[in-house]
Computed example of a mutant assay.
Amino acid sequence: MTQKISPNNYLITVANDRYANSTQLFRAAAMIHEVIHAYYHSVVDDNNSPTTNLSLNNFPALYQAYAQKTYPYGVTVAQHDQMATDYVVSMAMALQEYYYNNNPTPYPFLSYEVFTDLA
């Protein structure tokens, strides 16, 4: 879960019981996922700054309205759809690099599809 502490400052927490029996690769995927949520929230923070050059007076409210119109199921669904559209390849590549850099040789070969499925 990603929780806003202050503008551009987020706390990511995970439930121990959910991850206790999971693989390190699954945990890495979950952390990448939560970091992207924090990034999306930071975009709202950046565009709500008094120093921004945007002519938008209330970017968070405008984003909320856009997300509700485009994704009637809510902002979280909008973020997940955006992750699926824009970040699956980057997430898969990061997971693949993590896996091969953190497993001793010889490691079990995993197809790229495993990493994209986790992403």
Rank of each mutant, 00 (worst) to 15 (best):
S55D: 13
D45K: 11
S55Q: 11
I5H: 11
N53G: 14
S49H: 14
A29I: 00
Y66E: 03
Y19V: 14
T13D: 01
N16V: 13
A65L: 07
Y10D: 00
H80I: 01
T70P: 03
N101Y: 09
A20F: 08
M83K: 10
Q96I: 00
L56K: 08
V89Q: 14
V89K: 11
N21A: 14
A20I: 10
L95R: 04
Y19L: 13
Q24R: 14
N53K: 15
Y40R: 12
V89C: 03
E34Q: 10
L110F: 00
K69P: 00
P106D: 01
R27Q: 10
L56S: 15
R27A: 08
S90D: 07
Q64A: 14
D17E: 08
T85G: 03
E97W: 11
Y112V: 06
P104H: 03
Y71D: 10
A92I: 05
A28K: 12
E113A: 03
V77D: 07
H33S: 00
Q68M: 01
T13Y: 04
N48Q: 06
V88K: 15
E113K: 07
Y39M: 05
L11K: 09
Q68K: 09
Q24H: 14
A65K: 08
L95P: 09
T105F: 12
Q79E: 08
P106N: 05
Q82H: 04
S111Q: 01
V88A: 03
M31R: 13
E97K: 12
A28I: 02
Q24T: 05
G74R: 02
D17W: 10
M91A: 09
L56M: 12
L54P: 05
N9A: 11
V35W: 10
N101D: 15
T13A: 04
V88Q: 13
I5L: 15
I5M: 14
Y63P: 00
N48G: 13
Y73R: 06
V75P: 00
L54S: 12
Q79D: 06
Q64W: 00
N16H: 03
M31W: 14
A15K: 09
T105P: 04
S49Q: 04
K69Q: 00
A84E: 09
H33V: 02
V35F: 14
I36L: 07
Q79H: 07
N8C: 13
Y98N: 06
R18L: 12
N103P: 04
D86W: 04
Y112E: 07
A67Y: 01
N101W: 04
I32V: 15
F59L: 02
V114T: 03
D17G: 08
E34K: 13
Y73D: 15
N53V: 09
N9W: 12
R27D: 07
V44E: 11
H80E: 15
F109C: 02
V89T: 11
Q68G: 01
N102P: 01
P104N: 09
T23G: 12
E34G: 08
T51H: 10
L95S: 06
S49I: 02
K4G: 11
Y87G: 01
N101T: 11
A67E: 06
Y63C: 09
Q64R: 11
P104A: 07
Y107G: 05
D81N: 05
Q64F: 05
D46V: 09
Q79N: 04
M93S: 08
A38H: 05
N47Y: 13
R27H: 05
